[in-house]
Design a binder for these strands. Sequence first.
DNA 1: TTTTATCATAAAAACGGTCTCATCACCTGT
DNA 2: ACAGGTGATGAGACCGTTTTTATGATAAAA
Lengths: 342, 342
Amino acid sequence: MTTIKEVAKAAGVSVAMVSKALNNYPDVSEKTREKVRQTAEKLNYSPNVVARNLSSKNQKTIAMITSGFLRSESLDNSNSFDLLKGVYQATEEDHYELAMYFTETEKQQEKDYAKFCRERNIRGVVLSGIRLDDPYFKTLLETNIPCVLIDVKVPTENKLIGGVSIDNVQAAYDMAQYVIARGHTRLAVLSGEGEADVNGQRLKGIMRAAEAKGIDLGGKIINGEFKEQTAYDSVRAFLEQHQTNLPSALICFSDIMALGALKAIEEFGLQVPEDISLTGFDGLKITDYTHPTITTVKQPFQQMGYEAARLVQRIMEGKEGERQITVPHEMIWNSSVRDLTV
Amino acid sequence: MTTIKEVAKAAGVSVAMVSKALNNYPDVSEKTREKVRQTAEKLNYSPNVVARNLSSKNQKTIAMITSGFLRSESLDNSNSFDLLKGVYQATEEDHYELAMYFTETEKQQEKDYAKFCRERNIRGVVLSGIRLDDPYFKTLLETNIPCVLIDVKVPTENKLIGGVSIDNVQAAYDMAQYVIARGHTRLAVLSGEGEADVNGQRLKGIMRAAEAKGIDLGGKIINGEFKEQTAYDSVRAFLEQHQTNLPSALICFSDIMALGALKAIEEFGLQVPEDISLTGFDGLKITDYTHPTITTVKQPFQQMGYEAARLVQRIMEGKEGERQITVPHEMIWNSSVRDLTV
DNA sequence: TTTTATCATAAAAACGGTCTCATCACCTGT
DNA sequence: ACAGGTGATGAGACCGTTTTTATGATAAAA
C-alpha cells in the first residue's frame, strides 16, 4: 500500500504538497503538480478514503437510510433497489462515499439514524420509506445534517430538507379520470397506510376527479397497508360485505396491493377486467406479466434516487435552489380496465 | 459529537482506558470498566467507525462487489438485491462495515477491485456476477484479501477463497429428470454465457439426466446470455429454424430467459405448456404470476448472501473449515410443464 | 527486607490523510 | 535601497480512534 508519504519522498516534495497538488489547490506550481501527478501515477497511489474522511473538514459521505424491507419479499423491494441504484450512480459520479442503513420498524434500538451518521462522519442523507413524523428522523434533523426524503413533500421553511417524488396528486387524478372516462362510476380505492405522505396525495387526486363527476367514495376506501397479503384480505372482506353493490373498478395505490386484489377478486369468482376493473401504482415490471396485464403509473425510481443524491449534495455544498423535485411519471395503459362505454 | 476524549475526562481516566474498557480488554479493573461504561452511556458516546477503521489493525470492513447490473432492468436484479440483503444482515449482526461496489463490464478503468479495497481498508470481499478468470479478480487475490464468490466452485488449494452456491448440477439434473419423467424426449436447453461457472454446472446436470435416457441434445443448446431480450431473439430464431422438428420442452437456465422464451413461443403461435413445455431457474417471484406459472428452481439468494458474508468473516479471522458452502435449492412445481404420459 | 511478578493505568506513537500557518525567495513600486 | 506584496513550499497540528510501551503500585516470592 503506497501512502502519501512515499509519493512525497519519491517526488522530492513535502506531504502537504502532494495532497495539494492532487486535490487541485491553486497554490501549487504547474511544474510541481505535474511531477507529483506522475510519481503518484507511477507508484499507483490512490488516497485512502478512510484517512481522508477522518481528517478532512468537508467529508463527502452520504447515507441512504431505508425503512423496513429486510424481511419482506423481494418483489416489494425492486423499487427500493432501483432507488439505491440511482443514489449509487450519483455518488459514484461525484466521488462521494455511500453508506447504507436498512432499518426495521420493530427493532427499536437499532433505529437511531443520527447515531449511525455521527459514527460515520456522514454529512448528508437520502431517506426512503420514512415519514416526516418519525421520531428518529426528527433527532437526525437536530444534528443539522441535510436530508432528502423520497416520496414526501417537505416543509419549505427548513432549507436543510429536500424531497423527491412524482406528482402523486396528478398521477392519481389522471388514473381516476381514465377510469371514469371509460364509464366507471362505482369506484373503490385500495389505499395504503393513512400516515404515509403519498397516500394522502393520491387520495386527494382521486377525490378531485371523483367529485368533479359527482362520484361519492364514502365507505369505498379500503386499507391494504401497501402489502399484498393485507390487500388480499381486505379486498376479500370488502367484496363479501358489498356483494349486492359491487364496485366496477378498484383503484390500488400500489402494484403489490393490486396483485393481492387481483387474487382476491379471482378467488371470489369474478374476472378482471370483465367484472371488476383494476389499476395499480408504481410500475413494477411484474404488471406486464400478470393476467391481465395491469394498468398502472410508472415511477422512475432509479431517477428519483439519482435526483435525491444530487439534491442532498447540493444542499451539503450550501447551494440555494429548489428543495422539492418532481420527477415525471408515466401512465402504463395495460389491459386491466374495461371500457364500459363501447 | 462526544469523542473518546470527553468520555475520558468525564470519567477521570485516560483515553486509552476508555478504549480498552469499552473494547473488553482484560487489563482493566472492573471498577474502571463500569465507571467508563456508565459515563459513555450518559454522554451518549459511540465510537467513530472512521477513526477506528483508520487506526485499528483488524478492521472489520467487507465489501460486496457485483458486476453489471446498474443499467439492467430491475427485474434482473432482484436476486442481486436479495444477495445484498443477506450480506447486509450478516454484517450488521456482527458489527462489520459494508461497502458496495457495482461495476459495469464496459467501464474498464472503474473495475479495479483491489484499488477500491485498498482505498477503504477493506479486508474481505463478497463477489457476485464475477468469474474466476476475471483479471481484476486476479489482482485482488494477489493482495491477499479473502474473497467469497457467489455461484462459483472455487479451487480448494487457496485458503483465502471461498464459494457459496446451490448444487447446480443436482438442481439441473432434478429438473431434467422431472421433465423427462413426464414423457418429454425432444429437449432443448436455453443456456447462459458459456464462461459462467453455473452454466457449465447446470449443463452437466442436464446432460447426465439426458444421457441416462439416451436423449441427444446435439444442436439443441441455445445461448440466451442470461438476458430476456437475447433469449427472446434466440428462441425465436431457433423455432423458425426447427419448425419441422420442434422440441417438446425447453429448459431455461434463468427465469429471466424463460420469460423471453415464453414470449417468443407465444408470438410464434404456440402455447405453453400445450405445445411446448418450459422451465426456469432462480425462483423469481414473477414466475408465480405469469401465464402459465413457470416451473423453476428456487435459489435462496438472501441466505446465500448471508452465508457468504459469514464465510468471508471466518476466513478473515483465520479460521479453518470448509471453503465451499452449498445451500439448499427448492423445486417449484408450477404449471409450465405438460405431462405427456397421461 | 529485597526482588520479582502482576496488575492497572497513562503517555505517546501510530493510522494516512487535510489544512493552517510560517517561511522564504522573488518581484514590484517608490 | 527598502517596504510590501506575491507565489511556492514545508512543518506541524489535527481528525478520533487503537495499540504499544512505559510507569507506578501492589502483591507474591525469595
